[in-house]
């Protein structure tokens, strides 16, 4: 394998794993809870903000990666209590409300940011050599972390006893209530987990890059398309969708004009959704 080929494969896997990481929180909120959460991108952005502030105030963006899911998760549970809760019966209302929430969060961050964009230092800068190709270390870390987190989430949410209760609650609220599960706490908790995962993703991807207020919304639509392509109702569907979308998005720029590559992927996904609305994985 030539170094060039290694580089392309690495980039492809890197893009795909970033998308999977971004989608993880959405898989919980949109996939499992079926709330069309348009402020999901802002959770990602807030996670990046935590990483940035940690790097400035505490001198370590690594610390930010640990703090981000906690802060953003708490923030998510507050939003759930104040706003989201009112819209469980009305998906379109939830969509509008979260659109407005995202709008407010974005503009508050924009108003507070003194510069256009803030660079966040990578905690592990530098490159490593693999089969002749020079590859950035942090991107490798992202890949490994993504795989780990996906495995944890899969066994934690899809397979464990707690996961079972969460799913039972989301499937049939009344029945769950009758069996003594506190559904409102379950909803709040699940939403907070989804927000926290998004915050974690934001803190992971921003080091080595620029933090800016539209960081989240710029990723929102690819995230949504990944979830819809994968299919609602499961954790694994959206993640598979993210991988299925991430690979061509990562690979195609090496073959055709990068701008068109994304267009091709999105249009392809739209057509796929039209003819298989249940997605890749359906229950």
């Amino acid at each position: 394998m030539s170094p060039e080929t290694v580089r392309i494969i690495f980039d492809t896997l890197s893009v795909a794993s970033i998308l999977v990481l971004l989608v993880l929180g959405m898989a919980v909120i949109v996939g499992m809870m079926r709330i069309f959460n348009l402020c999901q991108g802002e959770f990602v952005m807030l996670g990046a903000v935590v990483a940035y502030l940690a790097s400035v105030w505490l001198g370590s963006s690594l610390l930010g990666i640990i703090l981000a899911p906690i802060f953003v998760g708490l923030f998510g549970s507050v939003l759930e209590r104040l706003v989201i809760r009112r819209f469980y019966g009305s998906p379109a209302g939830a969509l509008l409300a979260t659109f407005a929430l995202g709008f407010v969060i974005r503009e508050v961050v924009r108003a507070l940011m003194t510069q256009q964009g803030a660079p966040v230092p990578a905690p592990l800068p530098g490159n490593f050599e693999f089969m002749g190709a020079n590859l950035p270390v942090w991107r490798l870390v992202i890949m490994i972390v993504t795989i780990t987190v996906v495995a944890l989430a899969y066994f934690g949410l899809a397979r464990s006893a707690i996961g079972l209760r969460v799913r039972a609650t989301l499937d049939n609220r009344e029945l769950a209530e009758a069996t003594g599960i506190s559904t409102s706490r379950m909803y709040a908790g699940t939403y907070a987990v989804g927000a926290g995962l998004a915050g974690f993703a934001g803190a992971m991807i921003v080091p080595g890059r620029i933090l800016y207020p539209d960081l989240g919304i710029d990723n929102l639509i690819p995230m949504f398309i990944a979830v819809m392509t994968g299919g609602l109702g499961t954790i694994e569907g959206p993640l598979l969708g993210a991988f299925a979308l991430g690979v061509p998005s990562g690979l195609m720029p090496a073959l055709i004009n990068p701008v068109f590559a994304q267009v091709v992927v999105i249009v392809g996904a739209i057509v796929f959704m039209r003819f298989r609305p249940a997605g890749l994985v359906s229950r």
Binding site: P91, L95, I221, M228, N257, V259, F260, V267, I270, M273
Partner: peptide, 26 residues
């Protein structure tokens, strides 16, 4: 030929807008 729901229409048209802007940019 498809009984797509209201939210599906919203997301697809939103994605279309996203793709159209990217396309025009390139």
């Amino acid at each position: 030929g498809s009984r797509v729901g209201e939210l599906y229409v919203g997301l697809v048209t939103l994605a279309l807008a996203f793709a159209a802007e990217r396309f025009a940019t390139g």
